[in-house]
Structures are given as structure tokens and as C-alpha cells.
Design a protein around this nucleic acid. Sequence first.
DNA 1: TATCATTTGTTCGTATGTATC
DNA 2: CGATACATACGAACAAATGAT
Lengths: 265, 265
Amino acid sequence: MTKKPLARPRPMYLEMAQQLAAEIKNGDYQAGDLLPFDGDLADTYGVSKHTVRSAIAELRSMGLVYTQQGKGTLVRDQGGAAPAVTIDRSVQRSGKAWRLSDLPEHEPPAVTRTTLEGRVAALLGQPDQDAISVDRLLSDPATGVRAAHRMLIPLATAAEVPSLAEVPDVPPSDLLKQLSEAGKTLTFKEHVTARAPYPDERITLGLTDSSPLLISYRITAETRDGEEHPLLCEELRAPASCELVFAVAAAKAATQRTPRRSASA
Amino acid sequence: MTKKPLARPRPMYLEMAQQLAAEIKNGDYQAGDLLPFDGDLADTYGVSKHTVRSAIAELRSMGLVYTQQGKGTLVRDQGGAAPAVTIDRSVQRSGKAWRLSDLPEHEPPAVTRTTLEGRVAALLGQPDQDAISVDRLLSDPATGVRAAHRMLIPLATAAEVPSLAEVPDVPPSDLLKQLSEAGKTLTFKEHVTARAPYPDERITLGLTDSSPLLISYRITAETRDGEEHPLLCEELRAPASCELVFAVAAAKAATQRTPRRSASA
DNA sequence: TATCATTTGTTCGTATGTATC
DNA sequence: CGATACATACGAACAAATGAT
């Protein structure tokens, strides 16, 4: 009289999510369509509402659908074709004037003083040193997509170029101009990763679900004595509905030097 | 009798996740430590085990902890400082020889013929055209981290440079060399976004949870008649424990041209 | 404007399966 | 083998948001 565990290799909610995902990508559900509601899906699949919710949570975290309380579960407009917002991370220069393309500010920047720690400290090579932090909340007027931008000016850099610290909440390109006028040759590296947002980030960025966050650090460095010395660090946190675009520099590899310490180059 | 929309209490599980996240980042729990188990946490917080599970699911998707069935919930080794693997996406050139830094292959590449669709088709500007697809599963020997790499050679490009299609499963840098030898001037753009993995991607990439996936498209283009014509598209899918590094080109902005169509530059 | 049905969100309780020690 | 602890699944109740009446 023992129950047959059905010998299913994968959990039912994943099976269900995979099937629904296939149907969405197959076009059975068009973008903007409402998925059948919890109860109906539970009946047709012969499972409980809870299992349906787990499956839908999977679909949501995959970015295939989004849900609105009181309305239903809607299929995302995803030919996978176009991201909601394209954030251009290119750097342009004409003489000592720089041009960065950024989203418009949503609020006036907040200037604070912080201690460098974590990934930022590692990238700047200045753990436990102090820095001026300029925090901005950016917003794309067309879509309402928000992103958080933080410009970190280490005190060591401000000591070299004091004008940076006087009015730190100017556009980032102005800071680059001041560094150029101080005689520095600037290079740029971007470090990109992703993670799920923290609860407070979900609020400030206006995220409805826990879809991932793109994290990008732009390190502005000067090349001195053949070595790169980091001067500034910008941190950008944007929802994954965005796409970051980089114009990649094709460095000349005449001299074969590999100063990178990365495990896998 | 109007409703106060402001004083909304946040859901308990989010509150709990935020507090636990703060404690982890505060150092109350060290890397490798076991979190108190469901039942104890439920008692101390005065909630049900189900709510504890929701909170822990949040922490897991944030990458702060990971769980092992039968063992417990462990705190990730994350000073937030160093990513597991740094993937160098720089491009180096010496004459007509190119050098790309890639992870070692885990299996011999699989060559198939596909039709361009979705984001890749949009980036190449060739919807519904055919292409040669070379799929590789990369693996970092030190950490075991895996990544999926796909090189797409549109038939239009193969028609211009037939040698590409003859042996497509050579290292990407070899393809660049052939393009260079065909007299083409190459430029590179990377488009980076993130999303949660599909179930099959979780399997092939060996992911234990649904932490995000970094998606990067590298478009190799030639500049002809002042316009960029895409030639190749590489798709890289890597777990978010990785970090992608780009050396950003500082383009000269002497002529102010903005051919980008992006909504928010 | 207010009410109401619909649908998702959150929380509880409970039970069973399964991996680890 | 047994205890522990996470994973999955069912059922139920109420809260909150939405849209229509």
C-alpha cells in the first residue's frame, strides 16, 4: 500500500517552469498575455497553488514573465531582442575634454566621506583608505528605469589634484578633465559582474522582483613609469533589463607582458 | 478614513533577509559558518519555518549563502572582495595576429548551422539569416567554474572570407587573423547584460542555485565607408561569480557624431 | 466614490522525501 | 541505522492590489 513516488528525477515545479518556458518561447503565449491564474494552472497540472507559485517564481526570475498583484502574470516582451535600456559606457576624448554618456540625474548628488572596502578597495588598491563618495540616482526618462551611480575619489588622488575635492559633485567628465589638465594620461578598465539585489536596492531602484543587478566598476587610472595607478572608481548598479555597451580597446601586444594576476586569462 | 499608503510594513521575510544580510556583511557570521537552522531561526524570530526559508532563498539569490541538503546553510566566502574567476575580455593585436584571452576548453567544440534570431540577430543586423555556430564549454581548471561560449559566423561573412567556413572550430583569434589578412580593419564592442539561468543552463554550467548569469556579446565589426559592419558575434554565458574585465577604448570625439540609436546614451 | 470579485502576495501549519553526518 | 536539516509538496487563511460595477 505504499505510495509510488512517481520516480520523477526533477522537482515538479521545475518541470512545470521548463514546460511553461518552452510554451512561452514557442509563442503559445504572446507578449503581454496573461498566464492562466494560479488556481486554473493548479487544476490543469494537478498540483497545488503553492507549486504553481514556485514555478512562476522561476519564470519570473528568468525574466520571462512579470506579475502584478491583483492583475495576473504577464508574459514579458522578450524576443530577447532588445533590452529596455542601453547604457553606453564608452569614453570619448577631444584633447583634454572628455565626454561620458550617462543617464540623467534623478536627484541632486549626495556627497559623503567613506572608507574604501570590499571590491572597490581591492580595485583601487587602497584598502581602509578614505575617499569622497558622490552618489547619484540616475533615471531614464523614457522607461523610468533607474540606476545607482557612485563616484569614489580616494583622498590620495584628491591630494594630488586638490581641485577634485573642492567641488566633487560635478559631472564625471569634469573630473577627468581636471585630471588631464594636471598632466595625467588616463586609461580605463571596466569590471562587470552581476548579483541579486539587496532589499534596499530593490526599493531605491524600484525593482518589483529580484531579477539580477548589473554591477560595473570603471577604474580610471594613469599610466606612470609603465605601471597603472588607479585614480578614480565609479560604481554603477543597474537592473539587468539594461545592457551595458563597451567599445573594447585593441591594445597593441607587441611586447608580450602579462601583468594580470587573474587565475584564468 | 483615508488609507495611509506610506506606513506599509515590509514583508517579514524581506525584513529578515535584510537583517541577516547585514549581520553577514557585518562579520557576525564568518565565511564557511553554518547559519542557525530553520527551526531555531523560526523560534528566535517568532515566525514559521516557511518564512525562514523565504528569507534564506533571498540570501541565496544574493549570493551571500549557499545551502547543502542535509548539511545546512553556509555563508559564502565573499568579502565581496574578489570574484571567483576574472575573465579577461581584452583584445590584443600585433600586426595581423590577434590574441584573445579565453578559458581553456572543456570539450571539443560543436559546430552546427543555425538561423540568427533574438538579440544576436539584432546585434548582427541580420535577422533570419543563417550562420555557422561553434559552441564551446569552457572551464577554469583552478575553480571548476564553467562558461558557455558560442562563436557565430554569419554566412554573409563566410561568403566574403571563405576560409572562415572551412575550419570554423579554430580559436577565435585565428578567425580574427583571417579577417585581418582579408584586409579588414576590425573594431570590437561588447554588450553585457544578466539574467537568471534556464534550467538546462543550470545543468550544463553546473550551477547549484539560480544565481544570475552574465551574458556578453562581443561584436567584431569592420569599419567601411565610415560605417560599422558586423562580421562576427561571440556569445559568452558565465555565472555571476565571474567578473568580466574590459579595457575601454577612449575614442576620439573630434567629430561629434552620434549614430547610436540607444534611448539613453 | 464606494463596493465587490478577481488574482497575486504573504504567512501559517503539516507531511514527506532525501542528503549528510 | 538514526538524527539532523534542507527540499518539495499539500492545504488553508488573510492581506493587498487591480479592475469593473
